[in-house]
Each structure stands twice: as structure tokens, then as C-alpha cells.
Design a protein around this nucleic acid. Structure first.
Length: 794
RNA sequence: GCCUGGGUGGCGAAAUUGGUAGACGCACAGGACUUAAAAUCCUGGGUUCCGCAAGGGACGUACCGGUUCGAUUCCGGUCCUAGGCACCA
């Protein structure tokens, strides 16, 4: 009998399907829960990529293992189904995005089921299903009610080629992430979510999470908290004032001019008559500049003088006010005090326009500094803070400003509100109506969902409005109200899908309180690092809002997060069609079977590392599967020797611990050692094959089921995990290294716990050790029981 | 420029609180089986030097230095590489 994955695999897949083997028990279950989640895929029409099965196999191994350990496991799969590609395709072909999407979902389902993942299809969801987005709209209304969703005229990333507005994350180097079209800044009325209200909590609560440190750091940087002084400068001669923000208040005596963002609301009012033309010219130029052009000139500072002056509140010094696009309206107050001696950007600007540079901080080590010194040191020429080290000077300046009433301590975040509307068809409609004045009126909860109308044309209007704006009968709502025509971004549905998975067919609420209490938070969330700030931050934000609404009992959704590495092409480069190094999982399954693909992807290396694909190396894993098959089905039975038992228990121990630690590559190598041991003996004790097959089950479930059946057993997937005997998993004799001066010169076989004397005596028998000791005296002996003996000689 | 990872044989990698570096797999070489090949099984191997051999010596985890009886592991510095952020005051 030969190993035939092509017959085995479909057989067990339909067996599981028929028996509902992986059905998740309801929250009333007495078992402890384990919620293991994959980042759900966008069902692209090109189907599964080999990167998908990497993460999905890892979570499937854990899900199968946890079931065997007595947990009620929720391990669902679903579809992040709204998105631009289906709409782009519709534009070209006229095929409705819903059709394209459901076709793609079918392909994904077929591919995933061919890999033997233990999903419970009763928990499947799709974000474009009205019974799903009904609740996305419901949750949006909750945000709206709390004042966390608002409309605002904001400069947005307008992409003329795509005829839509893009989020900052969708713009890379001034071009659209998709298509690489140029993107421009343009003011438009947009829906925004007030994620900035949650900046501090989103930052603080990171400390509680079992997440990769790198991802937490990325989020911290993204939130970008900094503390400093917000300070008002009176206008010279006129009335009014300009507020600036600085993290270096200690340098305020070195300020030689102020800079406002070109869009700053005060620019028009303060500009002197003779500067009007120059300023207007510069403002126009700045607004028309695309992001790309702005970055191209990042070195070359430009600006214009307003003709106005402000007074430094600390010494009444008169400072010219300039505008420049190196100051952004979106951060701080949109205005800065420029200290060219101690800030590189201010320095560059001062150089370009011959503005004065005044040094007020000296490096502590008095190192001669050329140009601009941005580090900390000691204040000089700075009135009451002269002689103070930087940290002390900062505090002193803030205190004085607060006492005098022209400034205050201020915490700033780089995080900005979340641009939440898209001028597209294929997304969730906003459950919002507008009256003639433009005011927003929420659609009543019982009227949800607001479904997408069927349209003939997906062409955006090009004026910035969504294609929905052309469907006049849809727009009209009772009472003379008009529907909002923007739709939500793709990240809306993915910000809470993990909550719908727990209770996916609930028609009275997004999820029941009982289900939430039982299942949340997610115990392990696995997905690519590319979502480190976008999706993972948004999902945390929504969860915190729902927590504040009393809808959930945990304010962090994902207790533990792990990123899988990227699977690279055989050339070590990222897989891409243009490079021609893409591997199709279907063809691997066709050639070797799903179990081999699963084993191979787990054996390649550590889960969280990038790994190049190696078609040759799959052979090795395939050979292992064949050997395992032959071992159980062909080798003659035998009595288990002590050595056999040790090999078994060591293997169970290693596999168990490695699954817990997500070290699947070394778990597989432990099973290889086991198989090699018996293959070499040319016989295998039948009784020891049972726990081996149980260990194999999470990794190669079809093969394991087949072997289990061969051994006369049933229901492998419901069999408890094998336990190892700690005593048997230990060696009964050890090899101790004998070192002279820290270099290994030989080894000694001893029983565990052998005494120093015994080891020392045996060590002196070794010729190479004797050679090394010849003519020398032992000055010191280091003995680590069961490890090493080190002789230090003089 | 800033923040994170990573750098170990020909290749993917292992070594879980400092204790025999290279488990397991690929590729390779030799052998068994075979008329032959494939498949399978067994054996070998970091580099280098001495030796016919058994064996022994030196070097070796990106590079330089430090701590230690002992460092892939800890500390300081440098280089390379991948990813992220980037005029954020």
C-alpha cells in the first residue's frame, strides 16, 4: 500500500464535513474557550497565495491541538469582501462587484477546504453581506451618537485617475498605493472618526498586550505622543496672537522668526498690504503641489514673508512671521517658533532666507558644533534659564509661561482623526440622511440595513462624489431627506468582524452579550505585519468605543498577537507576477497533497520570519510523510524497548511544548527523529504508533486520520492529546563535556546527577585531557552538574 | 535621518534562564538492493593543518573590542540587510 494523498485527502475532508467534526460548541459549553483568529482575507480573483496557508496552517495546528486538550475552540474564516479591485473590475467589464466577489469567495473556499483546515462554516461571515453590514452601520450609529463620527471640510488625498479620495495609508510616496497614480491635496467634506479622543488609551493599553514589541513600538510611534509648551505670541502693533507648539521651550530665547502653515487661518488677516501678492502666490503654489512634489523638495525649503511681526512673550523681541509648507496645519497649532540654531529644518530655512541664527544651547561636553545643534545641553544667553541643563530649563520655561498666563504644558499626538468616507460604490452606505441645511440625521436602527442599490454604472462622477450620487431614486428618503452618498472604507467591516464571528447569525444584535462574555478576547490573533498600524489600531479603537457603550466587556480585542513572516520566491525576493516567482498552492497540492504543503510551510523555518520558497526542500517533507505512512502500515510489529519508549516520550514532550510555543519547525523535526529511529530498526511497536499519529494530526490531519483508521481506531480529531511521562522523556545517561581552559577536550558518559568527583576522575582518564594537563597544575575546577566539567590550569 | 527585526556550513535552519555550535531537512559524495534506472535503505561531511590510519592540533556563529573558567547567547562600537516612519516642531 502506498501513500496516496489524492485519495486520502478528499476522503477525510468529506468525512469531517459529514460528521461536523469541527463544530464549535455554543457559549453555554462547560469547556474552557479558546478563540484563535486569522486575519481574514480579501477574496481576490487571483485566488489563494502560498502566504495564506502559512498563517492558516499555523492557526489550524493550534486549533486542532487545543481541541485535543479539551478546549471549545472557535477558529472561523470569513471574507473582507468590500474593496476597490472588484469595483475597478466592474468599471472595465460592467460585471457587478457582488458577482465578482462571490465568485472569488467560492474559489477561496474550494482552495481552503482542499487544505483540510478545521473551520466551522457555521461561523463564516462576509463583510459585504447586508446581514453583516447592517451591524457595521449599527456600530457606526453608535459612534455617531457619541460624537465620534463627524463631517468636516478637510484637505484630502484626491486621486484624479481613480476619481476618489484616498486614506494616508493608501498613498505611498505621493502616489496611490493601487495603480501608482499621482495624488493631490484638495479640500472636501468628509466623514471623520475621532480616534484622536482615544490616543492616550490606545497608547497606554499597549503595555498590557502580549504583542510583538516591534508592533507595539510601531503603534506608539504612529500615535506619536510628545510633550511640550503651547505658547501665545502677541502680534506686534495689531491685535491678536499666534499660538505655537514646541517640545523645546528651553530654546525660546533662540527664536528668530515664526512660521505658519500656508493654510493657517490667520495668514490672510496678518499679511501686510505689500506682501499680499507674494503670500497669495505662495499659498496657491503650496495647495497645488502634490504630495510627491512636496517630498521631492524636502531638502529645499521655500516660504514667503507676511510682513507681520510677533513678540516673544519672554523678552518682547520682535520676530518676523513667515509661511512655509514645512509647517503642517494638521499637527500642533499649525504654527511654530523657529530656532534655527537648534532645529535642522529651521536652520535650513534660515539659510535659504538669510534669517538670523542665535545659539542658546551649548553641548554639555563643549564639543564644537558646526551649523545646527539639536541635542540637549546647557542653556546660554537665555535670561533666567541660563546655565540650566535642558530638562530643567524646559520645566522652568513652562512654569514661567503658565504663571504669566501666555502658555501651558501641552501633550501632542501625531495621530490624526480617521478619514472614514470614500467616494465609491462597493462599500457600506452610511446610515445617514441630510436635510436641506446639510445637517446629518441618523437612520433609525430598525430601518437598517441601508442596502446598496443595484446600479448600471460604477463610473465615479469625477466631481468627487460617489457613483451613488447618480441614483436619484435611492437618494430620496421620506420627509424630503437625502441619503448620504459616500460609503465607508474597507477597514470599517474589518474593525469588528472578530465580534461577529462569535455570534454570526444573530438577527437582533451584532452579537449577544453572552457570546461576547464567553469568547472575547481573542486568545491568539495571527496575521501579517503589514496591518501593524492600520487595521490593528482601528480594531482596538472600535473595541474601546464599544466598551464605553457597554456593548463589550473587554477593551482590548486581541490578547496575543503574532505575525507570520512573508514567504519569498525561490530567488529570495518578494513573490510577484512581474518577477515570475509566484508559487501557486493549488499546484503544490496537486503534486504532493495538502499535508505535504502544510508540513512544508511549517518546516521552512520560524513562523514569524521571512523565508524563501524551495521547491526541492518540499521533497524532503514529502519523503517524511511517506516514511511515516510506511512506518505505520508496513513495518512489522515488535515489543517496545526502553530506548523506543524514550524516543516516543521525548517526541511527545517536544511536539507538545513546541506547539504551545508556535515552534512548528522544530516540532516537525522531532517527529522526523521519531520516524527515523524506527525506520532504522526496521520494526515498530504498534502501541507506540498511536500517540505518534495523534501528534501528527494537527500538522498532517488527513494522513493522521488514515493511519489512525489503519490502526483500528476512530474519531482521531476528538481524541485527547497524548501525555508524556516526564521520567521517560529524560535521558538515563548523559554526555558531559570535559573542558580544559574552557575548550572541550573530551566527553564522559555518566548517570544523571553524577558527582563532581566521579566526573573529575573519569575526565583524568582521557588521553587528550591528560595531554592538555601535562606539566601544568589544576588551579580551579568548574563543575556544572549534568553539563560540563572545566579544568582551569595555571 | 529615526524606529524595529535579522546576519550561524554549499542552502533552509537548530542550540528556551552563558555550558559539547550545526539537531532536522535540502543539495552533494560513497555504499546496499536492481540486468539497469527510478524509488527505497545505510554511511559520510564546518574550514584547515599533521598522519597510511586510528587519531590529534589550530581556527570558526557579519566585523572589532570587553566581561567570564567558559560567549551564537551578556555589554560597547562598526558594517551589511529587510521592514516601517519620515519637514510631526
Amino acid at each position: 500500500m502506498a501513500y496516496a494523498p489524492k485519495t486520502i485527502e478528499p476522503k477525510w475532508q468529506s468525512f469531517w464535513e459529514k460528521n461536523q467534526t469541527f463544530r464549535t460548541e455554543p457559549p453555554s459549553s462547560k469547556k474552557p474557550k479558546y478563540y484563535i483568529l486569522d486575519m481574514f482575507p480579501y477574496p481576490s480573483s487571483s485566488g489563494l497565495h502560498v502566504g495564506h496557508p502559512e498563517g492558516y496552517t499555523a492557526t489550524d495546528i493550534l486549533a486542532r491541538y487545543k481541541r485535543a486538550r479539551g478546549f471549545n475552540v472557535l477558529h472561523p474564516m470569513g471574507w473582507d469582501a468590500f474593496g476597490l479591485p472588484a469595483e475597478q473590475y466592474a468599471l472595465q467589464t460592467g460585471v457587478h462587484p457582488a458577482v465578482t466577489t462571490s465568485k472569488a469567495i467560492e474559489t477561496f473556499k474550494r482552495q481552503l477546504s482542499s487544505l483540510g483546515f478545521s473551520y466551522d462554516s457555521n461561523h463564516e461571515i462576509s463583510t459585504c453581506d447586508p446581514q453583516y453590514y447592517r451591524w457595521t452601520q449599527f456600530l457606526f450609529l453608535k459612534l455617531f451618537e457619541r460624537g465620534l463620527a463627524y463631517q468636516k471640510e478637510v484637505p484630502v488625498n484626491w486621486c484624479p485617475a481613480l476619481k476618489t479620495v484616498l486614506a494616508n495609508e493608501e498613498v505611498v510616496d505621493g502616489k496611490s498605493e493601487r495603480g501608482g497614480h499621482p495624488v493631490f491635496r484638495m479640500p472636501m467634506k468628509q466623514w471623520m472618526l475621532k480616534i484622536t479622543d482615544y490616543a492616550e488609551r490606545l497608547l497606554q493599553d499597549l503595555d498590557r498586550l502580549d504583542w510583538p514589541e516591534s508592533t507595539k513600538e510601531l503603534q506608539r510611534n504612529w500615535i506619536g505622543k510628545s510633550e511640550g509648551l503651547e505658547c501665545r505670541f502677541q502680534l506686534d502693533g495689531g491685535s491678536g496672537e499666534i499660538e505655537i507648539f514646541t517640545t523645546r521651550p528651553d530654546t525660546i530665547f533662540g527664536a528668530t522668526y515664526l512660521v505658519l502653515a500656508p493654510e493657517h487661518p490667520l495668514v490672510g488677516a496678518i499679511t501686510s498690504a505689500q506682501q499680499q501678492a507674494a503670500i497669495a502666490d505662495y499659498q496657491k503654489q503650496a495647495s497645488q503641489k502634490s504630495e510627491l512634489a512636496r517630498q521631492d523638495q524636502s531638502k529645499q525649503k521655500t516660504g514667503a514673508f507676511t510682513g507681520a511681526y510677533a513678540l516673544n512673550p519672554f523678552n518682547q523681541q520682535k520676530l518676523p512671521i513667515w509661511i512655509s509648507d514645512y509647517v503642517m496645519m494638521g499637527y500642533g497649532t499649525g504654527a511654530i517658533m523657529a530656532v534655527p540654531a537648534h532645529d535642522q529644518r529651521d536652520y535650513d530655512f534660515a539659510q535659504a532666507y538669510q534669517l538670523p541664527i542665535k545659539t542658546v544651547v551649548k553641548p554639555a561636553d563643549h564639543a564644537p558644533s558646526e551649523g545646527c545643534f539639536a541635542g540637549e545641553g546647557v542653556s546660554v544667553d537665555s535670561d533666567f534659564i541660563s546655565g540650566m541643563p535642558t530638562t530643567q530649563a524646559i520645566t522652568a520655561v513652562i512654569q514661567r509661561a503658565e504663571k504669566e498666563g501666555f502658555g501651558r504644558r501641552k501633550v501632542q499626538y501625531k495621530l490624526r482623526d480617521w478619514l472614514f468616507s470614500r467616494q465609491r460604490y462597493w462599500g457600506e452606505p452610511f446610515p445617514i440622511l441630510h436635510d436641506d441645511s446639510g445637517a446629518s440625521i441618523p437612520v433609525a436602527y430598525e430601518q437598517l440595513p441601508v442596502t446598496l442599490p443595484d446600479v448600471q454604472s460604477y463610473e465615479p462622477s469625477g466631481t468627487g462624489e460617489s457613483p451613488l450620487a447618480a441614483i436619484t431614486e435611492w437618494i430620496q428618503a421620506p420627509g424630503g431627506l437625502k441619503r448620504e452618498t459616500d460609503t465607508m472604507p474597507g477597514s470599517a467591516g474589518s474593525s469588528w468582524y472578530f465580534l461577529r464571528y462569535i455570534d454570526p447569525r444573530n438577527s437582533g444584535a451584532p452579537f449577544s452579550a453572552e457570546a461576547e462574555k464567553y469568547w472575547m478576547p481573542v486568545d491568539l490573533y495571527l496575521g501579517g505585519p503589514e496591518h501593524a498600524v492600520g487595521h490593528l489600531l482601528y480594531a482596538r479603537f472600535w473595541t474601546k468605543v464599544l466598551f464605553d457603550c457597554g456593548l463589550v466587556t473587554h477593551d482590548e480585542p486581541f490578547q496575543k498577537l503574532v505575525h507570520q513572516g512573508m514567504i519569498l520566491g525561490e530567488d529570495g525576493e518578494k513573490m510577484s507576477k512581474s518577477r515570475g516567482n509566484v508559487i501557486n498552492p493549488d499546484s503544490v497540492v496537486e503534486q504532493y497533497g495538502a499535508d505535504t504543503l502544510r508540513l512544508y510551510e511549517m518546516f521552512m523555518g520560524p513562523l514569524d520570519r521571512d523565508k524563501p520558497w524551495d521547491t526541492k526542500a518540499i521533497e524532503g517533507v514529502f519523503r517524511f510523510a511517506q516514511r511515516a505512512f510506511r512506518l505505520v502500515t508496513e513495518l512489522p510489529d515488535a515489543e517496545a524497548s526502553d530506548a523506543d519508549l524514550k524516543v516516543l516520550h521525548k517526541m511527545i514532550k517536544k511536539v507538545t511544548e513546541d506547539i504551545e510555543g508556535l515552534r512548528f519547525n522544530t516540532a516537525i523535526s522531532a517527529m522526523m527523529v521519531f520516524v527515523n529511529h524506527f525506520t532504522k530498526n526496521e520494526k515498530r511497536p504498534r502501541a507506540l504508533m498511536l500517540p505518534f499519529v495523534q501528534c501528527l494530526q494537527p500538522f498532517a490531519p488527513h494522513l493522521a486520520e488514515e493511519l489512525w483508521e489503519f490502526l483500528g481506531q476512530t474519531q482521531l480529531s476528538r481524541t485527547p492529546w497524548p501525555v508524556f511521562d516526564a521520567a521517560l522523556a529524560k535521558d538515563d545517561h548523559l554526555t558531559i563535556a570535559i573542558q580544559v581552559m574552557g575548550k572541550t577536550r573530551g566527553t564522559v558518559e555518566v548517570e544523571p546527577g553524577a558527582s563532581q568527583d566521579a566526573v573529575h576522575k573519569a575526565a583524568l582518564e582521557i588521553p587528550t585531557v591528560q595531554n592538555q594537563l601535562a606539566g601544568k597544575t589544576i588551579k580551579k575546577v568548574i563543575f556544572v552538574p549534568n553539563r560540563i566539567l572545566n579544568l582551569v590550569v595555571g
